[in-house]
Design a protein around this nucleic acid. Structure first.
Length: 486
RNA sequence: GGCGAGUUGGUGAAGCGGCUUAACACACCGCCCUUUCACGGCGGCAUUCACGGGUCCGAAUCCCGUACUCGUCACCA
């Protein structure tokens, strides 16, 4: 049987990293099977938490990431509708809830909240954990139906066996067993007629033929309750893959409330969707081969549920940066230029060859957003301090630098505008230190500084002189020599 | 508090009873290369796997206990 997985977010705002990783894993589990199907289902049964536009963010994010769903609200499919509120309209959950009542897996409850809260406070005051002992369990179905016919408000609760244990096998955590008496009789259908997540989820997963349930491990403790529902219906229990959380630090999950980065924040900060996906795949999962840079397709091939870890993984922006840098460097120059052109244009208004700038940038920039700041010296020649010429490693000081710069000026001035290209500059400039009896660094390091005014630049003196052009290079060089002579 | 789960360097992690004097990667620190930074190359960075017992010829790996962390106990998902 082909594997079917689903990503079932509730549209409550932005897509956070932990969620996205769950979607990724669900996708990978499905696509590992050539016939596997990845489904998007929107869980909007909590009408109070709906956020405008949230579903669009979900579609957009999945699209940017290449996590293409085979079935979903926007693309349709054989087991729709794919939005839970649409499913509610068909009366489907109520129908199944009644069936469950008939099978003994659930019961009507007419208790009001005050009563329940009173009981809760009592139990908590006694230091016990709260477990609602529902008097309505004793009511006969006929009596319940009469009361409902009379317009009484009701909910439907799950009926849990008082004794025994329930176990299940999780692909990540192994076998888990709990005593039934610790399970509470959760509400399945709310008084507004909507199903709770707990119920809708089970019914939908079954109706949609989900074979592998991939979700966060916060559901680990409620899974036995879901299994009791599957059993009461006589349905097959899916395979479970509970994923540990993505953490901000040792104690806190990444969360929207703390203002932690969402997928779109990261994209806005200059990270590539593919690199983000690559990185989060590695948070909680490790490949068998000794490799860390993966495209989505490569992840599909390499992915293996057995290598999902059990511990929450701390999100490390540094490593993301490194991976993003690797992605950037792995691009061919044309695509790279295409990608970074807007960032170059933002910083460089002057008439310089953007593609040459891209070429020197590619080996250095790790994120797109740091690009403009790296290029500011092209348009405006910054003021800088002569002390920068003193560099122990390069064996330079102000005197050596001045001598070098003068020699450079003389040489560069003699080069014809038509011969001003990187190759020629390279041959000519590299001959200079030899002639002067200096090390390359003693000549080229001051030169780079003299024409950029910056300690660090993308690219060396030759590449930058080439891009700046003869006129501008000589102008800056002249200014720097004068500054040094003072 | 009950129940469930987890605990290998600053971080992600490999490891599944002997091949581990604990891979690999990020970060960090040296060195080399080099026209700077970066890239690339080389080396350093856990005598030790939360702690305490036990099993075993042998344990990070199995068992028990303790500690700590997380999750859950909603008409939220």
């Amino acid at each position: 049987m082909a594997i079917r997985t689903r990503f079932a977010p509730s549209p409550t705002g932005y897509m956070h990293i932990g969620n996205l990783r769950t979607a990724l894993y669900a996708y990978l589990v499905a696509k590992k099977d050539p016939d596997g199907v990845f489904i998007l289902r929107i869980e909007d049964t909590d009408q109070g938490r709906l956020v405008e536009g949230a579903t669009d963010i979900i579609y957009e994010t999945l699209k940017q990431c290449g996590l293409k769903h085979d079935e979903g609200p926007d693309v349709g499919g054989p087991v729709g509708p794919y939005v839970q509120s649409d499913r509610v309209k068909s009366g489907l959950y109520m129908k199944y809830a009644k069936e469950l009542i008939a099978k003994g897996g659930a019961h009507y409850c007419f208790c009001d909240e005050d009563m329940i809260n009173a009981q809760r406070e009592l139990q908590e005051a006694r230091g016990e954990s709260f477990k609602y002992d529902d008097p309505c369990k004793k009511l006969s179905i006929e009596e319940c139906e009469n009361r409902i016919a009379n317009g009484e408000k009701f909910v439907i609760r799950q009926t849990i066996p008082e004794t025994g244990t329930t176990s299940f096998e999780d692909e990540v955590f192994g076998k888990i067993t709990v005593d039934n008496e610790t399970l509470d009789e959760q509400i399945l259908i709310k008084s507004d007629g909507f199903p709770t997540y707990n119920f809708a989820n089970v019914v939908d997963d079954h109706l949609m033929g989900i074979t592998d349930v991939v979700r966060g491990m916060e559901y680990l403790s409620s899974t036995p309750k879901y299994n009791l529902i599957y059993d009461a219906f006589g349905w097959d229990i899916p395979r479970y893959i509970h994923c540990p959380p993505v953490m901000k630090d040792e104690h806190h999950k990444l969360s929207k409330r703390n203002g932690d980065a969402s997928f779109q924040d990261l994209v806005a900060k200059g990270y590539l969707p593919g690199a983000i996906l690559n990185y989060i795949a590695l948070l909680g999962w490790s490949p068998e081969e000794d490799k860390e840079i993966f495209t989505l397709d490569e992840l599909v091939k390499a992915f293996n549920v057995k290598h999902i870890g059990k511990m929450g993984a701390i999100f490390d922006p540094e490593k993301l940066k490194w991976i993003n840098g690797m992605w950037l460097r792995n691009m061919d120059l044309d695509s790279y230029y295409n990608l970074v052109k807007p960032y170059i244009d933002e910083a460089v208004k002057g008439d310089f060859d953007g593609k040459k700038i891209a070429a020197i940038l590619q080996q250095r920039a790790q994120t797109l957003n740091e690009i403009p700041g790296m290029l500011d010296f092209f348009d405006t020649f910054p003021s800088y301090d002569n002390s920068l010429y003193v560099n122990k490693k390069m064996k330079t000081d102000e005197a050596v630098s001045l001598e070098s710069l003068k020699a450079c000026y003389e040489l560069l001035e003699s080069i014809d505008e038509a011969d001003w290209n990187q190759e020629n500059l390279h041959t000519q400039l590299l001959a200079l230190p030899k002639k002067m009896g200096r090390k390359n660094g003693q000549v080229l390091f001051p030169l780079r500084l003299a024409i950029t005014g910056k300690q660090f630049t993308p690219g060396g003196a030759i590449e930058i002189a080439d891009i700046l052009g003869k006129k501008e290079t000589l102008r800056r060089l002249d200014l720097s020599i004068k500054q040094l002579e003072k």
